[in-house]
Design a protein around this nucleic acid. Structure first.
Length: 200
DNA sequence: GTTCTAGAAC
DNA sequence: GTTCTAGAAC
C-alpha cells in the first residue's frame, strides 16, 4: 500500500518529509494582523519582509494555493482579483513605476504576487539571484499568468530556462548596461534613480 | 526565503 | 589585504 503510506507521511507520520519552517513563513505572515496592509474577502496584502525595491508588496489568496502549478481555470477569477488589488496598490506611489508578477519558481509556499517598484533600490537586494529574479523572465507578469491559465487551464514553466535566468550576467533593467558586480549595479541604480527624479 | 563564510576575484 | 560571491545549512 505505497499510496496509503505516502498519504500517511504527508499527514505527518514518523517518516514524513520535514518541510523547512521558513518555507511556511508567508502563511504565518499573512495571518499576523500587524503585517496586513489591507485585505479583501479573498486576499491579503503584506509588505515583503525583505523588500528588493523601495516599494515591495505581496498579494496572497486566503485560500490555500501552494504555487502556480496548482492553479487551474477555476482560479482565473481569483487571480484577476489579486491583479486588481496590485493595480490599486500602485496608486499609493504615483511617482514610481511598478510591475505585478510571480516568480517562476518561488522558494516559499503559498501563492503570492509581487507588487514591486522598478527602482530595485534596497539594502535587502544583495545577490545576483535577487536581482535577476525580478528583472529577467524569471519574473512572470501577472497578465502572462492569466493568459496561460485562460488559454491552457494551467501554468507551464520550464525549470531549466529559469535556472539560467538566475545565472545571467548582471545588466541594468532600465538602460541595459551590463554591470560588473552587485556593488557596481547598486551605484548605477542610484544614478539612474537620480536621473529619473531630476526636476521632479 | 536568509545567514554564514570559504575561497575566488580583485 | 580586502571585496565579493556561491553554496551549505541535518
Amino acid at each position: 500500500m505505497a499510496t496509503n503510506k505516502r498519504k500517511h507521511e504527508k499527514q505527518g507520520g514518523p517518516s514524513a518529509k520535514k518541510v523547512p519552517p521558513w518555507m511556511e513563513g508567508l502563511k504565518q505572515a499573512m495571518e499576523n494582523p500587524d503585517l496586513k496592509v489591507l485585505e479583501t474577502d479573498k486576499a491579503v496584502v503584506i509588505k515583503d519582509k525583505y523588500p528588493k525595491a523601495r516599494h515591495h508588496y505581496l498579494v496572497l489568496p486566503k485560500e490555500n494555493i501552494s504555487n502556480l502549478k496548482s492553479c487551474q481555470k477555476e482560479h482565473v477569477e481569483l487571480l484577476e482579483h489579486i491583479h486588481e488589488i496590485g493595480a490599486n496598490l500602485k496608486t499609493r506611489h504615483e511617482n514610481s513605476a511598478f510591475r505585478l508578477g510571480y516568480h517562476a519558481i518561488p522558494s516559499m509556499s503559498q501563492l503570492h504576487m509581487h507588487v514591486i517598484s522598478q527602482d530595485m533600490i534596497s539594502d535587502c537586494m544583495k545577490t545576483k539571484k535577487h536581482y535577476n529574479s525580478f528583472t529577467t523572465d524569471y519574473f512572470v507578469p501577472s497578465e502572462t499568468i492569466l493568459k496561460m491559465l485562460k488559454r491552457d487551464g494551467k501554468v507551464d514553466i520550464n525549470a531549466k530556462d529559469m535556472k539560467l535566468c538566475l545565472e545571467m550576467n548582471l545588466r541594468c533593467h532600465l538602460c541595459g548596461e551590463s554591470q560588473k558586480n552587485i556593488p557596481t549595479l547598486k551605484k548605477h541604480l542610484l544614478l539612474e534613480d537620480s536621473k529619473k527624479n531630476r526636476g521632479k
